[in-house]
Amino acid sequence: MPELSILIVTWNSQATIRDCLDSINKNCQNLSLEVLVWDNASADETAKIIKTEFPQVKLSQSQQNLGFAKGNNCLVDEANSEFILFLNPDTLIMNDSIERMLEYIKDSKTVVALGPKLLYPDNSFQLSYAKFPNLWTEFFTKIYQRSAHQKRSLILKFIAKNSSKTKEVDWISGACLLTRRKVLQELGGFDENFFLYFEDADLCCRLKSKGQIVYYPEANVMHLVGISTKSQNLKTGYHYRKSQLYYYRLHNGRFSNLILKLYLSVKFGLAVIFSNREKKEWYKKIIGLIWSK
């Protein structure tokens, strides 16, 4: 039985999956592991690349895009290891990072989830943990996203400086998340009502009841950030808001939920007025989500 199962959900990931799997082969040689990929009906060469170049990978192909959460749950059912690593196809494992993460979680019975320091392709710091989503973090996220485009931003430097040590956090990014299979099964895995976004925060919210969630910067993973979704910006924006609204209904109070709805109504109401035709249609769909039950 392997000691680690690496689970990857792909969707039109031909631009990144080869390098991702190569990085696993190169930097996880000392580990007994299995790699399982769930392909969400990719229209490109993703499945072909895996079949022809990585025959040792266990590939499952869906006839439709089931989303990140359900795809991962299907892989968890197929996994054979005590420890599960959820990994995005647009990531690169660096050095012995996964080996370090596995050693850390094995040495601590109280840790139920562990995440590494994520890096942008230029090796600059990428925020991969946070407080649980709420109105304050919504505001902070906007500031961080703008700062991330300015590599010399004082805000970004401050965050990076305060992210240099291992610490307990609320939630860590699902781009690279190590956890225990037994705990996952007890919790029922990811909530499949999340198609894309917020499923990792929701999972960590439930994992928190079982133990500690730890940010571990001694391990580094490069994250190219949503390569397969860049051409789908309007559609992914829709899924982001849909998942956000669902998360708030689950975990935040009525007041926060109401404020979020009012904020989004104003934001996208104005966007409908001042945007082009294509964007207007998507923004109208988001407005329709806001007040639906």
Rank of each mutant, 00 (worst) to 15 (best):
L4K: 01
I8N: 05
V9S: 05
V9D: 04
S13G: 11
D22P: 00
D22Q: 15
D22K: 15
N30F: 06
S32W: 10
L33H: 11
E34L: 09
L36S: 06
N40P: 03
S42R: 02
D44K: 04
E45C: 03
E45F: 09
A47K: 07
P55K: 06
K58D: 09
Q61N: 09
S62Q: 10
S62P: 01
Q63C: 13
G67M: 11
G67K: 07
G67V: 09
A69S: 13
G71E: 01
V76H: 09
D77N: 15
E78K: 14
N80M: 13
P89S: 15
D90T: 05
N95I: 00
E99W: 10
M101A: 02
L102N: 03
Y104C: 11
I105A: 11
V112P: 02
L119N: 09
L119F: 07
Q126C: 10
Q126F: 10
L127Q: 13
F132P: 04
L135V: 02
T137M: 10
E138G: 06
T141R: 14
R152Q: 10
S153A: 07
K157H: 14
F158K: 14
I159R: 01
A160F: 05
N162A: 00
S163D: 03
K165V: 14
D170E: 08
D170F: 08
W171I: 06
I172C: 11
S173M: 07
L177D: 03
T179S: 11
Q185K: 15
L187H: 10
L187K: 11
G188C: 06
L196E: 07
L196I: 15
F198L: 10
D202Y: 04
C205D: 04
C205F: 14
L207W: 01
K208V: 12
S209G: 01
I213C: 07
P217W: 04
N220T: 12
M222T: 08
M222Q: 12
H223T: 12
V225C: 08
G226D: 12
I227M: 08
I227N: 06
T229H: 13
K230Q: 15
S231C: 11
S231A: 15
L234V: 10
H239G: 00
Y240E: 09
R241K: 15
H251T: 07
N252C: 15
G253I: 12
R254H: 06
S256G: 05
N257A: 08
L258Y: 14
I259V: 14
I259N: 00
L260E: 09
L260S: 06
L260G: 03
K261N: 05
Y263R: 11
L264D: 13
K267Y: 15
G269Y: 04
A271K: 15
F274M: 12
F274N: 11
F274T: 13
S275H: 09
N276H: 12
E278V: 02
Y283I: 07
I287H: 12
G288E: 01
G288D: 01
G288K: 06
S292M: 09
